[in-house]
Design a protein around this nucleic acid. Structure first.
Lengths: 264, 264
DNA sequence: CTGAGGATGTTTGTATACATTAATTTTCAT
DNA sequence: ATGAAAATTAATGTATACAAACATCCTCAG
């Protein structure tokens, strides 16, 4: 279920995927074409061509396009139709900060409102499994498993807040390109520089759960925010010295500028 | 432009509204029918009947329904189709808290990143106009003008953060029923009990702008959060002793329970 | 009398045809 | 040759027709 951002949650066989309803096929196919760069930034998405390409009619494709506009992968052109959205570095940075803020809100609410022991124990169990995935040394690390468990943990954390509204928004932000908690773990893109951060991240995880258990809302919130900022470091790395590894990061093809923000 | 949540931003004449594209007519019409309670909570929205009623075909109506699902007014049924969403008190409370958190984020970013003097001056000008709208006493208060200016100020505040991503999410939350900053000011529903809070709210406004000007990020964020919680008081009032005035609040028809949340 | 099975009617999901608006090219005048 | 304007082409927005899925109700056996 928490496997890959490109592969949906369909079964193993292709035959089963073919049976999926047209709308979902359109969403997944279009999302893939955008994230892999098959559709270049700024390209106007031609409905007829894409519909033919995806093997669906225009109606479900248009629904899928609306969905991707919501997800921030497309943007509506004032004249009509859509184009592939161009993401600035500031957009991605703000998306990460936004995720940290919302995760912080969820964690604070969890701490303030209280969480049952069962759910906290489930989080602990997930963290134990993450420890196993990390292994004893870098060579033993199971990156794919880590990515999967990390996504599960963040999802569990979002649910701890007990707010369907917050959970919903958090899922939205997680779908934004490169803003999700596993954005820089996709495609086995982990390299020594980012590996170190995994250990820090896991320490954050433990501390956050501890803060929630102790009903320390402010601490839980601050930790969750700081935790999200680890992704900022990864972003900077892949946009700087680690640029040659960046091709594996889904969605990085959407980034236009590499300049930094001015303080206005 | 910031007039009423039911009236769109069309011109004065009805003829001009008729010319609007079907999709927008469908969104506005459906939104009105839901917020006014013409479509009861839990009702399955029949596409053919509504399309005939709204004078559009099913295609733009379905797009409008997807939009309202995004806005949280409808929810997709697992079997297909949509029904009018039932809002719990907790949903509304969390929506308000969420807005406070996001406005707090925008204000903190504004303070940290800095804002040009021009934009701060524009905020000050808006606040001066709000003071005029408030008048010298309760009898002189121009509620409709206050509501309009208040919405403008909150919008300006959201833009001060300088983040298109945050602005976007904030606009989403503002569209959620009863979560926006003017939710309890609609329809001249202001009564003595809520009037008092307007003075406090305006003091918050001034303090927030001051904090941003002084580059005090933490203060700006805390103030913005507390400011949103004024809406919580209004919610409690209209759900309690002020229940007989609540009919004027758009969207309150969506609320099902009146119980309080358990700490679990 | 009750429950399972099937037939029927209604509703959504999809495809396609039509209408309207935007983009492009061509033409003509300056 | 260049610019503007009109005509043409191509795209989107909308309506409708069709198909598949869901719900309902009726029948009939146990």
């Amino acid at each position: 279920m928490y496997t890959n951002i490109l592969r949906g949650r369909e079964g193993t066989g292709v035959a089963e995927a073919e049976k999926k309803i047209s709308y979902q096929r359109a969403v997944m196919g279009l999302r893939e074409r955008i994230l892999t760069g098959a559709l270049a930034v700024g390209d106007r998405v031609s409905e007829v061509a894409l519909a033919r390409d995806l093997g669906v009619s225009r109606t479900p494709l248009r629904e899928a396009m609306s969905e991707l506009v919501e997800q921030g992968l497309l943007e509506k052109m004032p004249t009509g139709g859509c184009m592939v959205r161009s993401l600035t570095r500031a957009d991605v940075e703000d998306g990460i900060e936004l995720r940290g803020t919302l995760e912080g809100l969820a964690c604070r609410l969890a701490a303030e409102r209280g969480v049952s022991g069962d759910r906290l124990a489930a989080c602990d169990a997930l963290l134990d499994r993450i420890d196993v995935a990390l292994g004893r040394s870098a060579e033993n690390t199971d990156f794919e498993l880590y990515m999967d468990l990390n996504a599960q943990f963040h999802h569990a954390l979002a649910q701890l807040g007990g707010s369907a509204v917050v959970l919903r928004e958090l899922e939205r932000v997680t779908n934004m390109p490169m803003a999700g908690p596993s954005a820089f773990l996709q495609g086995q893109a982990v390299i020594p520089q980012t590996l170190r951060s995994l250990l820090v991240a896991q320490d954050h995880h433990r501390s956050i759960v501890d803060a929630i258990r102790q009903r320390e809302g402010a601490r839980a919130e601050a930790l969750a925010r700081e935790h999200a900022r680890l992704a900022l470091r990864n972003l900077n790395f892949f946009l700087g010295e680690g640029a040659r590894h960046s091709a594996r990061i889904p969605g990085i093809a959407l980034m236009a500028d590499v300049g930094t923000r001015g303080v206005g």
